[in-house]
Amino acid sequence: MAFTNAVASGRASSLSGVAVALEDVSVVFGSGADSYCAVETIDLNVRDGEFVAIVGPTGCGKSTLLNVVAGLLAPARGRALVRGRQVAGVDADAGYLFQQDALMPWKTALDNVSVALEVAGVARAEARERARAWLARVGLARFTARYPHQLSGGQRKRVALAQVLIRNPAILLMDEPFGPLDAQTRGLMGDLLLKLWSDDRKAVLFVTHDLEEAIALSDRVVVMAAGPGSRIVAEHAIDLPRPRETSEIRLEPRFHALQRAIWSDLRAEVMKAYGDQFGE
């Protein structure tokens, strides 16, 4: 197997805090003859404060991995650890930003954010006050009373981001969160995410099919193979300086070099997935 591990091992000291650890994780859907192995023997660590992006062809089980870390899905083999604790059931330490609309459509933007605190036992008045502050931080101070259907796709993502971050989760899991947005909004959301993230540097596991987005945002890009039975085929450290401006960083020569290097790994997998879908 061509193994192109390009991790800058200087920072990869095993002594530094590990926020997320996947150990020999396999996930199987269904049972018997119809069973389908989504991911196989995955080993992956995310250190405290590290932003890791996972890229791979469609249907390679990227989201499956996130669901295992979130505790929404139990692996067939292996285990997931969040800050040293094995994940069993929904993980309260994790914040999850979904690709699809996940806001409660019957609640206003403010209620959607404040409910995240209220269910944790924070008094209603205080929860609303803090929700208001968070909505202001994501640039929606004027839209607190709107219902999700009255907001644009980008605004809904901002509410979802506030909803997830207000709980101050230990780790952030993001499943192609900006996928449904147009390119410009996606860039703005990326910048907003980096700005919020740089305040307290949580560990992030960010799944995307967009390689440029992965490079622009992350510290490390993990390339997954085409499914079924997808594995990690390569890892690349992203040594671009921070703070970054996603629209600016794309113009750097180093960015292009990284893009070329990662794409050479990713391309083979994408072609494989493409071939599986459309015959030889």
Binding site: G95, Y96, A102, W106, A160, Q163
Partner: peptide
């Protein structure tokens, strides 16, 4: 109820009673 809304509500830490009140009931 949309599975995503439900999964999101679970990730926000809602227990069964809270899911009933904030998700199932309004739906």
């Amino acid at each position: 109820v949309s599975p995503t809304v439900l999964a999101n509500a679970r990730m926000l830490g809602m227990n069964e009673r809270q899911l009933l009140r904030h998700v199932y009931w309004p739906s």
